[in-house]
């Protein structure tokens, strides 16, 4: 690892100034992904700017609901805090479950909400220090003709990564917004935070240099709103999902009024399964409906040679998760 200096700013402005001072100055939140990248030689910052020493921005650490029922989640809130948030009701179950499912207990107590959304992909070509692919400025994607068992089936090309953030799937289903502090403060729907490879294969998010993600907001829940998250993993401890889904449904008098189905680890960005949502809205929950919606979840999938298995896997996952969220008994 290249030697670096550690900058410990006291204020958000100082932090922004330190990060913009030189291109090799990088913000560190939990440091889980960053230190990994530094060890692998993928990132070689000359200075790390500690977000955790900033003390003038309480929003960074808050986990609170306002009078209208909207939630504000600070960028420095850890995955462990989200996983243990007993104040989250059924409507935020997907976020709690997602946070509790990601990584391992020790990682969850370091990893932050902001860092989780902004982490780099796990594509094993990208992570290999000696390989140079499109994402690292090379001429082409090495996964297309390589081993892409874990890669995208939806929205892929010219890079076929899957977006790594588990929280992103849940937050996309929950219609969250992100707030950014920069030259000018701005807020975006979370879907707009992410950059697909067709637009720019070398990045995954839209933050400008020096911009800091300060918090995530989630609108107040509607009556009858419930959410759920599930993932399929090859290994049940310490593994990344093969696919994950967060569903957010509002059921009123026996009818599905609203539905959001967000898929993770199947596409280069957190992916709205709009056809599945359309299949659900206005219908009455039933096993047959769920089967139809699950089948629609992968509509438009274009798998590569070796990852078509993710289509039935994702459908099965969506099906199981909808059964739970809609409280429809699973077939034996």
């Amino acid at each position: 690892m290249k030697p670096f200096s550690l900058i410990r700013p006291a204020s958000l402005d100082e932090a922004r100034a330190a990060v913009t001072a030189a291109p090799e100055h990088v913000l560190r939140a939990g440091g889980v992904d960053l230190i990994d990248q530094m060890k692998e030689g993928l990132a070689r910052p000359s200075a790390l700017v500690e977000l955790r020493t900033v003390s003038d921005a309480p929003a960074l650490r808050e986990l609170a609901r306002d009078g209208d029922g909207a939630w504000s989640l600070g960028a420095l809130v850890t995955l462990a805090q989200l996983a243990a948030a007993s104040e989250f009701g059924a409507e935020l179950a997907a976020l709690r479950e997602a946070a509790g499912s990601a990584a391992t207990p020790s990682i969850r107590s370091m990893a932050t909400l902001g860092g989780n959304l902004l982490q780099r992909p796990r594509c094993w070509y990208y992570r290999h220090a000696e390989l140079v692919c499109l994402k690292k400025g090379g001429s082409h994607c090495l996964a297309i003709n390589g081993d892409h068992r874990y890669h995208a089936i939806l929205g892929g090309g010219p890079s076929w990564i899957v977006h790594p953030s588990t929280l992103a799937s849940a937050l996309l289903a929950l219609d969250a917004r992100v707030e950014l502090a920069g030259a000018e403060a701005r807020a975006l729907p979370i879907a707009e935070l992410f950059v697909g490879p067709k637009e720019d294969a070398t990045r995954e998010h839209r933050l400008a240099p020096g911009e800091i993600l300060t918090r995530v907001t989630i609108p107040a829940a509607a009556p009858g709103q419930r959410s759920a998250y599930e993932a399929v993993k090859e290994k049940q401890s310490h593994d990344w999902p093969l696919a994950e889904v967060a569903v957010n449904v509002t059921v009123e008098s026996g009818t599905i009024k609203a539905a959001r189905v967000a898929l993770g680890h199947v596409a280069p960005i957190p992916w709205r399964a709009e056809a599945a949502e359309a299949a659900l809205v206005g219908q009455q929950p039933s096993a047959a409906l769920i089967e139809r919606a699950a089948a629609a979840a992968t509509e438009g999938a274009k798998p590569l040679k070796r990852n078509a298995y993710k289509i039935p896997l994702t459908r099965g996952l969506v099906r199981a998760t909808l059964h739970r969220a809609l409280e429809v008994a699973s077939p034996a």
Binding site: Y125, H128, L131, L142, G146, D147, E234, H238, D239, W240
Partner: peptide
């Protein structure tokens, strides 16, 4: 990787030992 001859999962993250 057939094209580069490197081991793609020479770590304990994607080389998966029983947890």
């Amino acid at each position: 990787d057939g094209r580069s001859g490197v081991m793609l999962n020479a770590n304990l993250e994607s080389y998966k030992c029983l947890g």
